[in-house]
Simulated scan of single mutants.
Amino acid sequence: MTAPAYSAPHARAPRRTSPALARFLRHRAALASAVLLALIALACFVGPLLLPNTPTDNDWSAISLAPTLQNGHWFGTDELGRDLLARTLTGGRVSLEVGLLGTLVSALVGVVYGATAGFLGGRVDAALMRIVDMLYAIPYMLIAILVVTLFGRAFSLVVLTISAFSWLDMARVVRGQTLSLRSREFVDAARAIGVRPAAIIARHIVPNLAGIVAVYATVTVPAIVLTESVLSFLGLGVQEPMTSWGVLIQDGAQKLDAMPWLLLCPATLLCATLYCVNFVGDGLRDAFDPRER
């Protein structure tokens, strides 16, 4: 009897990285910015839990202390002896939460609104876009200031106020992309077999918008964070005991001559975050660019 032929075990084929992800990983500035942005977010959300000082603790022996490695006050303290590092990280968490929640609301409303207008077309598209044009004519910042002044500065109200107009650009971008998608073969095939328009939008249009939505979200996040910072700088953002980068910058600007670190530390983190998000957006734009496929 002959021994059965030995067959080597089949090796698993290595998983291939998606082309878009591979192009993003080759974008060095975007990759470095993504890593730095992740570190900033991790520091803002986890750092306050690990620090010995809370944002509201008063160290009366270290009032208006300049940044130093002694006494654990690496970013210094303010005129009440509160640790600026703890306040900066806590304020960064609030600013990032406003940016992420506002962008989420903007994406949800903008995608649904824009995809519906672009897919249905005709009079529906014209009517929906005229509403967008009218909303563009409203002075957004004045409305935000009016709403916050009349109804208070609660965190949820600040997010809703900023999100009320931030979805307009997203809707226009999604609408333009949907106009080109609705004439594709897979959409015609879905229509031919009797799929309802709502199902076509949900199953075929929206999934193909993921790239453009991801890219534009990276533009929306810094815009919302910057808007919240402007409102807080004007004294209309979140209120004590909650703080944000805008609140800290507004407080530091008033004491720039005597205590410049109160302005420089939160402003540096805010600028670094905005630059990182913009570079990540550039990397995503290049990764999803059809000319690179």
Rank of each mutant, 00 (worst) to 15 (best):
M1P: 08
Y6R: 12
R12A: 13
A13C: 05
A13T: 13
P14A: 14
T17G: 09
T17R: 14
F24H: 00
R28E: 08
A29Y: 09
A32L: 15
S33C: 10
A34R: 01
L36K: 05
A43K: 04
L51G: 08
P52A: 10
N53P: 00
P55Q: 11
T56V: 11
T56L: 13
T56Q: 15
D57K: 12
D57Q: 15
N58R: 15
I63H: 12
I63V: 15
S64N: 14
S64D: 11
N71V: 12
G72Y: 05
H73F: 06
F75I: 10
E79D: 15
E79V: 07
E79S: 14
G91E: 09
G92R: 03
R93F: 05
E97H: 01
V98S: 02
V98E: 03
G99W: 02
L100D: 09
L101H: 07
T103W: 07
T103S: 14
S106W: 10
A107R: 04
V112H: 10
Y113I: 10
T116W: 13
F119W: 10
F119Y: 15
L120Q: 07
L120K: 04
G122L: 12
V124T: 14
L128V: 03
M134F: 13
Y136L: 13
A137P: 00
I138S: 02
P139F: 07
Y140K: 10
L146C: 07
V147D: 07
V147G: 09
V148D: 01
V148F: 01
L150Q: 09
F151V: 10
R153L: 02
A154Q: 05
L160C: 03
L160N: 03
T161A: 01
I162A: 07
S163V: 04
F165N: 01
F165K: 00
S166N: 09
L168T: 03
D169G: 14
D169T: 12
V173N: 08
V173S: 05
V174H: 13
R175L: 04
S180C: 00
R184N: 09
F186I: 04
D188C: 09
A189R: 09
R191L: 11
R191D: 00
A192T: 11
A192W: 07
V195P: 01
P197M: 08
P197C: 03
A198L: 11
A198R: 14
A199C: 07
A199G: 04
I200K: 06
I200P: 04
I201D: 08
I201C: 03
I201V: 13
A202L: 12
H204I: 09
V206G: 04
L209W: 06
L209R: 00
I212R: 02
V213G: 03
V215I: 06
V219H: 08
P222M: 09
P222Y: 08
V225C: 03
L226C: 08
L236F: 11
G237C: 02
V238L: 11
W245P: 02
W245H: 02
G246A: 07
G246Y: 07
V247F: 08
Q250A: 15
Q250V: 00
G252L: 06
A253C: 03
Q254S: 13
P260H: 09
W261G: 05
L264R: 05
L264P: 01
C265M: 15
P266K: 10
P266A: 08
L269T: 00
L269I: 05
A272G: 03
T273L: 02
N278I: 13
P290C: 08
P290W: 14
R291N: 06
E292K: 13
R293P: 01
